[in-house]
Amino acid sequence: MVAEHLAKAFDQDISQLRGLIAEMGGLAELAITEAMEALVKGAQPLADGVIARDKKIDALEAEVDQLVVRIIALRAPMADDLREIIASLKIAGILERIGDYAKNIAKRAARIEGRTQFEPLTLLPAMADIAASMVHDVLNAYGARDADLAREVMERDAKVDAFYDSIFRNMVSFMVENPSTITSAAHLLFVARNLERIGDHSTNIAEQVYFAATGGQLADRTDRPAN
């Protein structure tokens, strides 16, 4: 629990900032799950909804930017407050990127043909579940200022990477065997890539949460071996 500040207005600013980040996070989370649902089921209205809501994320990011500048200019925060504010600013940027990846997935929903008997499509939801759970948990870690949970989320990224490698190979062999589906399969490759990036960005948020909570930097992940 962060100590109360003498200036109540400062507390309100920080509370408002954290609220905005949480709201962005909620939108990003929903964008991932709905984009995947739209992709798998071919639900175009759902995909359109995701694309339309991305504007809201962008608007919130701009609001966070303004608020952060105002807090720094007016209140000259120090120590853990400053860390918290800087981390929030960075997290807002990362969440906006995650929203973009989800929007990109939603845009590809319309380009998949022969959905019902398209086998690679069954591999993606499990990967999306892990990526979405990383985003979910890292936002919980942000809310609770929980450095341990942030570290756990970082460690989970290896699973998403393993999934990506597996799906990549599966997809390539599928394309070799079924050249007629290459267009659709290529789109799915990009979807897998987007999910992998979402996982990476969750670890970036985890780093910021850890930094805000402890003031330390998490050691960089050991790079996974190149394929």
């Binding site: 509370s15 408002q16 954290r18 609220g19 709201e23 996070g25 909620g26 809310g143």
Partner: peptide, 8 residues
């Protein structure tokens, strides 16, 4: 905290 932390 802000209510959105719990209900985001």
């Amino acid at each position: 905290q802000d209510a959105r932390i719990a209900l985001r």
